[in-house]
Design a protein around this nucleic acid. Structure first.
Length: 114
DNA sequence: TACTTGACCGTAT
DNA sequence: CATACGGCCAAGT
């Protein structure tokens, strides 16, 4: 659990309800541009007890990253729709719900890091 | 030490 | 829409 990890978890936790962000946007917000893979890796090993809105993280295309039809895929779709986010064919229109890591400063629940 | 993997990304064809 | 490529890099073999 180093500083980069902390910052990434913080960025994920800062995505407002009803909005989503891509792995790359999370990394950029955490002050780690180009490190999208690190975000994906961390989401697969969230410390026990830590609660995160993991379902608000999508690929840059707006698609859910998990395999279509898998349990995680269905759970993520359900959680997103529950807060008003449109999910059609495993995809969310980022034009309407997506947050950018560099822009959208007023929408994030935290200031840009680094 | 060397090579492979993977909830990824942007650009190019 | 689909493939390819180079970037990224911590973990696992």
């Amino acid at each position: 659990m180093n500083d980069s990890h902390q910052r990434i978890y913080a960025a994920i936790a800062a995505i407002p309800r009803g909005r989503v962000a891509s792995y790359g946007a999370i990394a950029a917000r955490a002050g780690l541009p180009g490190r999208a893979r690190l975000v994906g890796r961390l989401l697969g090993e969230v410390p026990d007890g830590m609660v995160l809105p993991w379902f608000r993280v999508l690929r840059s295309s707006g698609h859910i990253a998990m395999p279509p039809g898998s349990r995680g895929f269905r759970e993520q779709s359900r959680l997103l729709r529950a807060e008003g986010v449109e999910v059609k064919n495993g995809r969310v229109p980022l034009s309407r719900f997506g947050l950018d890591g560099d822009l959208d400063h007023a929408l994030w629940g935290m200031p840009p890091l680094q």
